[in-house]
Design a protein around this nucleic acid. Structure first.
Length: 271
DNA sequence: AAAATCCTCAACCGCAATGTT
DNA sequence: AAACATTGCGGTTGAGGATTT
């Protein structure tokens, strides 16, 4: 026989996440790491399915997310990578630490596609789309557009070479820095480092029961088979005693944006 | 000021790949 | 080897904010 289904979806909450749900999920992951998404909502006290928790964490709560608009260079890279890889958003996203596939996909569909269309460039081969005969009145506009097409095409071509060389470099780095998501000790060590960099160690330690000196992590040995050993008391302890404090403090103390300057220090989050 | 329309992006869905029993 | 669970991916949707009429 196989395993139990991921969720029965009965009585589960859907739609936008509340701040409290976010806090519950973040605190649970800080406490326990990520081992099995199926059990996360149950143990974190969330009426969500594991899939929803995973998505929320990956696309919104991960502290290494780079928020804000895409730079022109990033856009050019996306265009170039899309020309090579097609709609393989996760592959494309792997070239942009801190960006999610969802974010890139959204950006492509809402902005880049439109931008290329405006410039009269084909989104697949990046060549100018054949246009019907124009009237003399539009000559100036056409010239301007052609110039822009050439500029964009050239810029993208230039980026293409650097992207190719980065590809092999990135692969190497990824192998070197690879951290298994289920290695919660490692994950939490990195989190601590991150927090200490931000001088937030105090509240993280209080709220997550992570010892900054002993590296003891309450449930680092958690696995599917020994979930019964996970101290539910700890998460409820957190919910009862610390969450309120966190809810009160978090938004004023910590904006996730504050993590952005630490991009280079948190490459360990890369998939 | 109100209504209509457009735009963005978080979240959901279903499927495929992979892992486990 | 087969059956099933879990995870990850890409397509799509829709709520809500922004802009235009």
């Amino acid at each position: 026989m196989g395993r139990q289904p991921c969720c029965d979806k009965v009585g589960l909450k859907r739609g936008p996440w509340t701040i409290e749900e976010d806090h519950k999920l973040v605190s649970f992951i800080l406490n326990n790491g990520i081992h099995c998404w199926r059990v996360v909502p149950k143990l974190a006290g969330l009426l969500r399915c594991g899939k929803s928790c995973r998505l929320r964490w990956i696309n919104y709560l991960r502290p290494d997310l780079k928020r804000g608009g895409f730079t022109e260079m990033e856009e050019d890279q996306i265009i170039q990578l899309h020309a090579r890889l097609g709609n393989r958003w996760s592959k494309i996203a792997s070239h942009f630490p801190g960006r999610t596939d969802n974010e890139i996909k959204n950006h492509w569909n809402t902005r880049i596609k439109k931008k290329l269309k405006c410039l009269g460039l084909d989104v697949v081969n990046l060549k100018p789309i054949e246009q019907k005969q124009q009237t003399d009145d539009n000559d100036d506009d056409d010239k301007e557009k052609t110039n822009q097409q050439v500029n964009v095409s050239e810029r993208i071509e230039e980026n293409a070479e650097s992207i190719k060389s980065l590809d092999s470099e990135t692969e190497l780095k990824r192998e070197e820095n690879k951290v298994a998501w289920d290695d919660s000790d490692e994950l939490l060590n990195k989190f601590e480092m991150l927090c200490s960099n931000l001088e937030l160690g105090t509240w993280i330690s209080q709220d997550t029961n992570i010892s900054t000196t002993t590296n003891s992590v309450s449930s680092s040995s958690m696995s599917l088979d020994d979930t019964s050993h996970i101290s539910i008391d700890e998460s409820s302890y957190f919910q009862q005693n610390s969450l309120h404090q966190w809810v009160d403090n978090m938004d004023s103390i910590l904006s996730w944006d504050a993590f952005n300057p630490l991009d280079q220090d948190i490459s360990f989050f890369e998939k």
